[in-house]
Amino acid sequence: MTGDFVTSPEPILRVSNLTKTYSKRSWFSPGGPPKAALNGISFNLSERETLAFVGPSGAGKSTLVRCIAGRERPDSGDIWFAGEDRRAIQLIPQDPGTSLNPRLTALQVVSEPGAGRRVPELLSMVGLPVESSGAKVTAFSGGQRSRLALARALACDPRILILDESLASLDLPVQAQMVNLLLDLQDRLGLAYILIAHDLGIAGHFADRIAVIDEGRIVEEGPPVELFQRPQHPRTRSLIACAPGGIPC
């Protein structure tokens, strides 16, 4: 169940044996041994697929997505992407609102990546009123800022959207609306999602596959129903036992 796995359609992202180690040494302390954040992670992702990574804090989930989004360089391993422009992999961070410049208007935020005339279309695509394009980012609520961050990501014509616990800061009804919106966009634009989540409930509702990650390794992977009903690894069992809102099966 661990390591490399292949899905039936042609993958658009192939990650092989990714490793990343952080040193704890500093000028003032020799520190302990280096910590392996990623320890040989491999997976494939296909078009229109949603792959969720779940695991405890410090398991390596955020390091993994930062490496995929090009924000961090892995120590070794390969990331192959079926596209030339890395902007087609877009990351929406944990608190999407903080990723927006508070001095800009919605129009400026969405048009910055070069969307230009497409701004009204992108705003309505994410369910924001076109008339709000002149309002400053600070005038939007938390949920609306998430939609704005999504519109800006869509302005880059992405093929893969990475949601790094991007839904965690939203309250439940807004979370549900965002999940529906993301599923709708996936349907219309053929997007693939990589979802990072603490909450198995969201991952179960949203993802086609769930990969449990622990100490920088994928310890178990499979479709949500299979994973929830027949967990093999102790880490998976403990995550299911600790799921705050229960699991969707």
Binding site: S99, P102, A155
Partner: peptide, 9 residues
Amino acid sequence: PFLVAARAH
């Protein structure tokens, strides 16, 4: 975060 995001765009 907003500068990191802008750079990524």
